[in-house]
Design a protein around this nucleic acid. Structure first.
Lengths: 191, 191
DNA sequence: GGAGGCATGTAACCTGTTACATGATTGC
DNA sequence: GCAATCATGTAACAGGTTACATGCCTCC
């Protein structure tokens, strides 16, 4: 008969993301989501359908707790803050080596098999992807200018945000260059 | 009461990968997996636990079928080939625009929150990631040399494999350069 | 005889997305 | 009044990973 599975190595990756954001500043679910989309969006995404249940679970476990709401604000919003236990959990997570991301790039898969279909479909997908990446990169450039003044920040707490932004700029640039060269190549094949 | 969910937009991404491989050449589950790991590994991964059930499902739906095994080979292996219906399904998939990949880079998340833990942990993770990316890139370079002779192939059916390989080379190079510059920066902060 | 690769599968389980549902507040 | 944004949640479901289970074949 099948044995009980050992404790899974995998774990909810939404949890540490929430703990990290709350370590910086107490926030509501909606604010956490907006903050993640705004500052980590180019390498981390969260859906509300995952965020709210995870917030509830973290609160149940005592890793976060609800901030006493000031009585004058009676909108139904729930602001959380990190507890000492949550902070310890976050620190333990930070010390663990990160898992290698599992790549699954559908666009590349379609390109790889493009000779089995219409080549101009692949070309269209590629052009769309180029436009998308370019747009994302421009958004990062705007943020670099507006938040960091276009220069490497001196303050250590800003530095990490700047470094992860640089990652996006570098990788998007490489992707754009590659897209352009492939489009070039495909157009030559067709001609 | 909750309504029945509409037909999901999401779909099994293992399916088209299998159909594509079988369109090139009939193969067993094990061979498909090995082929994917060998030629698409830097942008597409499959686990056996997903592959075998999906093969069975595709066969049930008539998109692939078992190749009659030559009698002299009585090892328990099952080789599949694409049917006409499978080929049509593959072509329809190729024409659809690819979904944007959802990025979730744990290493970047840990770096972003590194000031909440020990900075040398982040540095260690980064160094490990650099070594990993370098190794992956060297494997691609080896393949570029051995399979393509280090040059852009003339034959159209080889070109697509070469182009997706170039993607890996370009993106890994950008990642390595970024890792190195961040390691530099972090060491200066510590000093 | 044992290690390692070939080969096929199942079980358990969690993760995370999409769609649904609801309502308040703010600005035009 | 209406649209957009703020705000919180639940339901349904598929996707996919890890671990388990089994056994053959080949080479040393």
């Amino acid at each position: 008969m099948p044995m009980r599975a050992k404790a899974s190595q995998r774990q909810n990756r939404t949890r540490p993301a929430i703990l990290g954001v709350l370590a910086r500043c107490p926030a509501t679910g909606y604010e956490i989501r907006r903050h993640i989309a705004g500052t980590l969006g180019h390498f981390w995404q969260e859906s509300m359908g995952q965020l709210y249940p995870t917030l509830a679970a973290l609160a149940r476990e005592g890793l976060i707790r609800v901030v006493d709401k000031p009585s004058r604000d009676d909108r139904k919003r729930i602001r959380y803050t990190l507890t000492r236990a949550g902070r310890a959990t976050l620190e333990a997570w930070l010390a663990q080596p990160p898992a290698r991301p599992i790549e699954r790039n559908e666009m590349l898969l379609k390109l790889f098999f493009a000779d089995l279909g219409r080549l101009d479909d692949a070309e269209r997908h590629l052009a769309a992807r180029l436009a998308d990446v370019r747009e994302q990169r421009e958004a990062l450039q705007t943020r670099e200018r507006e938040v960091f003044g276009g220069r490497e920040p001196r303050k250590p707490e800003l530095l990490l945000g700047w470094l992860t932004l640089q990652y996006g700029l570098a990788v998007f640039a490489a992707q754009m260059k590659w897209c352009e060269s492939v489009l070039d190549r495909l157009r030559r094949v067709e001609a």
